[in-house]
């Protein structure tokens, strides 16, 4: 075999290897989705979304309270993380070229890598110990802390995409800087920021570890912020580890709801932003 043929062969082999690697990487995705779909679909019914978990031995039951709990927790997390994160992103994008900006940006990057269970331990020692009880408030705070660095950094990236000519036009008309930012830059970037926030919420919706000892779990309807509260991921976890076969089916159905929620948010937001880009 001459040298050119050999080089072409190596090229072909390596390129196929890369393709094969991608197929291999996507195989678990297919398997997970297939199992969740196949095993979970049977457990779904209207009651599954509206009823309380059934005690052992009784059939039926649902995750209505966990669904509500997840919404409460995400709402709390959003109230905490969205304003702080977006304004922090504004600082990094508009003023963050000094040493403090670099430090804050670096810390936000590093904070995205902190294990979620550590955030749980942190919030436990900060909130749960001082309130002397597990609470929805603590759970929401933990999820908020997890979302904060992501929202900060993505907001920054999106604000940077706003053309400088808009800022300069505003300033040239004599508009004060803060108004230029709040009335021109942020509204222009708002759809992108909304996307970033939605993705962060989707991610937080699936977090289990930080809720285990902050929000704990609850088998009853509850919206009180100073009481333990159920959530889809924690409910799924406790169903999965239970020794009862019917509960395993509930776990798969819960997983289906959770995956559908997360993927819908992800895909929906991506589809929306993609179509908007095409319009321009």
């Amino acid at each position: 075999m001459d040298r050119f043929a050999k080089r072409a062969l190596v090229d072909l082999v390596m390129r196929s290897a890369c393709t094969l690697a991608t197929a291999l990487a996507l195989a678990p995705l297919v398997s997970v989705l297939a199992y969740v779909g196949a095993q979970g679909l049977g457990g779904l019914s209207w009651g599954f979304f509206t009823e309380l978990p059934a005690p052992v031995g009784e059939s039926g039951g649902g995750v209505g309270n966990a669904l509500l709990g997840s919404l409460v927790l995400l709402g709390l997390a959003g109230c905490f993380a969205i304003p702080i994160g977006v304004l922090a992103g504004v600082y990094l994008a508009e003023f963050g070229i000094g040493p403090f900006g670099r430090l804050a940006r670096f810390c936000a990057d590093v904070a995205t890598g902190v294990p979620s269970i550590i955030v749980g331990v942190f919030v436990y020692s900060l909130v749960v110990l001082s309130m002397r009880r597990f609470s929805a408030l603590a759970g929401g705070l933990a999820l908020g802390i997890l979302m904060l660095p992501t929202i900060t950094r993505t907001t920054e990236e999106i604000l940077r995409l706003v053309p400088d000519s808009l800022r300069e036009a505003g300033l040239a008309l004599g508009v004060p800087e803060r108004r230029v930012i709040l009335r021109i830059v942020v509204p222009t970037a708002a759809p992108g920021v909304a996307t970033a926030v939605t993705l962060a919420l989707a991610r937080a919706a699936g977090e289990t570890a930080p809720l285990l000892f902050t929000a704990l779990n609850s088998r009853f309807w509850s919206t009180r912020l100073d009481q333990p509260i159920g959530s889809l991921p924690v409910q799924l976890y406790s169903y999965a580890l239970s020794p009862y076969e019917p509960w395993h089916r509930q776990a798969w159905a819960t997983a289906l709801v959770l995956v559908a929620l997360v993927l819908t948010l992800n895909l929906g937001v991506r589809a929306l932003t993609a179509s908007r880009k095409e319009l321009r």
């Binding site: 289990t208 976890y237 959770l258």
Partner: peptide, 18 residues
């Protein structure tokens, strides 16, 4: 590939378990 990262860890756990 990014979707793979979006699936909650507890769902991977469930899949792993069963």
């Amino acid at each position: 590939v990014e979707l793979l990262a979006a699936i909650p860890s507890v769902v991977y756990g469930l899949w792993g378990l069963f």
